[in-house]
Computed example of a mutant assay.
Amino acid sequence: MGKDEDSMNSKRVVFVTVGTTLFDALVRAVDTEEVKRELYAKGYTHLLIQIGRGSYKPTKSAGGDGSLAVDYFTFSSSIAESLKSASLVISHAGSGSIFETLRQSKPLIVVVNEDLMDNHQAELAEELAERRHLFCAHPHTLYNTISSMKLDSLIPYPPGDAKPVAKLINRFLGFPEE
């Protein structure tokens, strides 16, 4: 069975997480018809959205008939199961969500919340994107990021090596480079 054939016959889940934050802009962005059509065209079959404290409720759908199945929930005691079953993760820029996803070796699109003041999370996401461990987007650029992403261009994040992250944090805090 070829790769394309295999992906058409299996469940391929896109898991979206906003963590404990309020990030309706991300939920709205993934709930657009153009984003859902693009994900489906790329072989994904299900879209599972964790909406957190947000008030925007995405449109649920059973899928099939040439479209994604869409479901959502507010919180879960652990997103580990959702991460484990995901073929692609779209996440807010929280460091916990980012590193938990990278540890699972899942392709990741980090969406930066432009409403946050003094957004150090954006710097972390942009640095990791520059190192090609993930893709970085904003709510208004999510569709373009999905349509142009090449998953084979990502480089796996080396587990257990905290030096690059510590260096990044030290630089952000203004400590001299060693």
Rank of each mutant, 00 (worst) to 15 (best):
V16D: 03
C136Y: 05
S95G: 08
T74P: 10
I98S: 01
V110N: 01
S55H: 11
V35A: 11
G19W: 11
A25D: 15
E127Y: 12
S147M: 08
L151S: 06
D65A: 13
K150F: 04
K150S: 12
V16N: 08
I169N: 00
K167M: 08
E38D: 09
G94W: 07
L154I: 02
S91E: 02
F172W: 12
G174M: 07
A29S: 11
G94H: 05
F73A: 06
V111C: 04
G52V: 14
K42I: 02
E38H: 02
A80T: 12
F15Y: 13
K84F: 06
N119H: 08
A80L: 09
R171Q: 11
K167F: 05
T21E: 09
A86I: 05
A93K: 07
A93D: 10
E114S: 12
D4R: 15
R131K: 14
E33W: 03
L48H: 07
T20W: 07
S85Y: 06
N170A: 14
D71A: 15
I49W: 08
I109V: 14
S67V: 10
H138S: 13
T20S: 14
K3H: 14
L124C: 01
S87A: 14
S67F: 06
Y40P: 02
Q121W: 09
Y157L: 09
I51E: 03
G174P: 03
N9D: 12
S61Q: 08
D31F: 03
E114T: 14
S61Y: 04
D115G: 10
E178W: 05
A93Y: 12
S78C: 07
V27P: 03
G64Y: 11
I146T: 02
D6I: 12
S87V: 01
K163R: 12
V111R: 00
L128K: 00
L88I: 06
T74S: 15
K106Q: 11
I49M: 14
Y72N: 00
P58C: 09
V30S: 02
N119W: 09
I51M: 07
K167S: 13
L83P: 04
E123A: 10
S55P: 01
K60G: 06
S55A: 10
P156G: 04
F99T: 01
A125P: 01
H46L: 04
